[in-house]
Amino acid sequence: MRIGGLQKLTLLDYPGKVACTVFLSGCNLRCPYCHNPGLVLPEQSEGSEIPEAEVLSFLERRKGTLDGVCITGGEPTLQPELPEFLEKLRRLGYAVKLDTNGTNPAMLKALLQERVLDYVAMDIKNSPSRYAETCGGIDCLSRVRESAALLMDGTVDYEFRTTVCAPLHTPRDMEELGRWLKGARRYFLQPFADSGALVGGGVSPLSEDEIKALRDSVLPYIPNTQIRGQ
Rank of each mutant, 00 (worst) to 15 (best):
I50E: 00
I50W: 09
I50N: 01
P51W: 12
L56H: 06
L56N: 01
S57T: 14
E60Q: 14
R61N: 07
R61E: 14
K63G: 11
G64V: 04
T65M: 13
T65D: 09
T65S: 12
L66M: 06
D67R: 07
D67K: 05
C70E: 00
I71H: 01
G73W: 04
T77M: 15
L78C: 09
Q79H: 15
P80V: 12
P80H: 10
P83S: 08
P83L: 11
F85V: 13
E87N: 13
L89Q: 03
R91P: 01
L92P: 04
G93T: 05
G93D: 09
Y94K: 01
L98Q: 06
L98A: 09
D99I: 07
D99C: 07
T100F: 00
T103V: 13
A106W: 01
M107E: 12
L108G: 02
L108Y: 00
L108W: 00
L108F: 01
K109V: 02
L112N: 03
E114I: 04
E114L: 12
R115H: 14
R115S: 13
R115E: 15
V116K: 12
V116T: 11
L117N: 03
D118N: 14
D118F: 11
Y119M: 01
D123P: 09
I124R: 06
K125Y: 04
S127Q: 07
S127L: 08
P128Y: 07
S129P: 02
S129Q: 15
E133I: 11
C135M: 11
G137S: 11
D139K: 15
R143T: 08
V144C: 10
S147C: 10
A148E: 07
L150T: 10
L150K: 05
M152S: 07
D153A: 14
D153I: 00
D153M: 07
D157A: 15
R161P: 06
T163R: 07
C165S: 12
A166C: 04
A166H: 08
T170N: 05
P171F: 12
P171Y: 12
D173V: 07
E176C: 11
E176L: 09
G178R: 09
G178K: 10
G178P: 07
R179A: 13
W180P: 05
L181S: 06
L181K: 06
R186W: 05
R186I: 14
Y187L: 04
Y187V: 04
F188G: 10
Q190A: 06
